[in-house]
Amino acid sequence: MKKDFLERPETIKLLWRLLYILCALTLIPEIFIKRHGHFGFDGFFGFYALLGFLSCVVLILISKLGGIFLKKDPHYYDKK
């Protein structure tokens, strides 16, 4: 069976590249604009990129950890 455009490995590779490029593109304009942080520690270059990256990693890890205790079989509540 012929694979769909979005399922081909070369497309997926391309999409990955596109994602990296987009991430880089969001950083470039910050070089040209003057941005002042609100609280002193948030004024450095790429703060929001770092914040987005770190907070998502932490959120995923925490929820993964929580899942060990909280995830149950779908019939959990039906069981006697």
Binding site: L19, L22, C23, T26, R35, F47, Y48, A49, G52
Partner: peptide
Amino acid sequence: ITQMQLLMFSAL
């Protein structure tokens, strides 16, 4: 710009 950074790196 900062919003786009936040979102794109979350996507990453």
